[in-house]
Design a protein around this nucleic acid. Structure first.
Lengths: 240, 240
DNA sequence: AGGTCGATAAAACATACTATATAGACCTAT
DNA sequence: ATAGGTCTATATAGTATGTTTTATCGACCT
């Protein structure tokens, strides 16, 4: 079996030690489905996958069950494992998102995530302002302070960490766990792009100022203003 | 094993015939985790679950694998299956959403979904206006027409179907498959609430008018206006 | 007090058996 | 003769049980 398949293991096992057979098979087949190696309509069988992966029946079956739960395939008796189309996939599943980011669909997936961010974050900022606790507002204010420091000092690496941390705190303070959960996947996906942009353009102090403004608006419970500021912040991260 | 557990089977098997042992066990344990029967930190074992459910090891193991992939539990050697907290759950997973709707967290889950809708749908309307094809705009226009007819005729049942269909078309026309995928879960969850509201208040003709306006704005590629109109439509569905 | 190492419980993996949905032959009626 | 229904054979998923590996606990040594 190809060894170096699964980098950021998340679902199957802890990051330590070598991945289990189950994790390897799941990663391999899931990745192959998402990158188009097995186009929709393709029918595989458990036995076939046993041969291809070298794993035993139960391992392949458990992988298939997980992939089926993500909508990537469907088990049909007397037929086999039928690969399904994107319309059936669990597009919010962290593993599926990662597989798509590792596929030719990478740019499409990045665009989807960016649009998701545009939709979610302003509303999260509004909710954080309206419902966040004073403690959460305090954390947001101090995170904005750290961001400011890193910005004026030109510490790119620290700046990125503080930026992600501030946005994460706001998503959490929205009080909506679904929003909070998006922070990981959104920032993982946008980290690379943001990193790239910072290499070609220095940190914009007016952007930093917007973040400080945002923190203040949340702390003062100005929901509408916070939403508008967040919209402006995100708008600026994407040229057009 | 309790028979009438899984109503709307989706992941495991087709709707026909009786659910497989795997489906039953998955539904039962997943539901029990989401409704708090097994609070976070609880440690079960496969053997224990074999006894409880009456199923064999492979069935329990496959169910556990799927539940682990949804972040509901984690398998630890020499320890067992450790139940995880909500922070780890895949909150966008259709099954998890359904389990939470069937739990004491129902109201919380409904509120989360409503907030999600507020965030997504206006942005989807904007994108539909900016990027939708003329064909899609045409379908949206005609769906709005049907909605109008059902509205003035007071056909509640048809009105609800047309309303869901119009929103679904817009989410699809946004061009973002992640948005499109939310339509199912959002509308399934909100259907009941909307149904209830219609029983206590007649169809608002001004709401219907807003939908028609929205369709026109999308067709004329007025992204900002479409977004604002959608925001207003959704705002009206929630009193407070 | 802290590290090492063996015992062992539990998951992980492999294999053997069963049930069932589908294909395709065959029969029937138009 | 052909369209359509039924029935059986079987390939495949589903289920059950046996075997191996490994992370953790705790005794023991330093």
């Amino acid at each position: 079996m190809s060894p170096g398949a699964g980098r950021g293991a998340h679902a199957g096992s802890a990051a330590s030690s070598r991945p289990s057979a189950f994790t390897q098979v799941t990663e391999r087949i899931g990745g192959a489905i998402c990158d188009g190696t097995y186009p929709p309509g393709t029918v595989l069988t458990v036995e076939e996958l046993e041969v291809v992966t070298g794993a035993s029946r139960s391992v392949v079956r458990e992988a298939a069950r997980v992939l089926a739960s993500k909508g990537l395939l469907r088990a049909r008796k007397r037929v086999g494992l039928e690969i399904l189309g994107e319309g059936e996939w669990s597009l919010f599943d962290a593993q599926v998102i990662r597989w798509r980011l590792d596929s030719p669909q990478r740019q499409t997936q990045l665009a989807s995530l960016h649009q998701l961010r545009i939709a979610i974050e302003p509303e999260a900022a509004r909710l954080a302002a309206e419902n966040g606790t004073p403690e959460q507002a305090g954390e947001i204010i101090s995170a904005a302070g750290r961001l400011w420091s890193a910005g004026v000092d030109g510490e790119h690496d620290q700046f990125l960490r503080d930026d992600a941390s501030l946005h994460r705190l706001i998503l959490r303070a929205s009080g909506n766990p679904m929003f909070a959960q998006l922070s990981d996947v959104i920032h993982e996906a946008l980290r690379e792009r943001t990193l790239h942009e910072l290499t070609i353009r220095p940190i914009s102090l007016s952007d930093v100022q917007l973040h400080v403004d945002l923190a203040g608006q949340i702390q003062r419970r100005r929901g509408n203003e916070a939403g508008a500021t967040m919209r402006e912040i995100i708008r600026r991260t994407q040229p057009s």
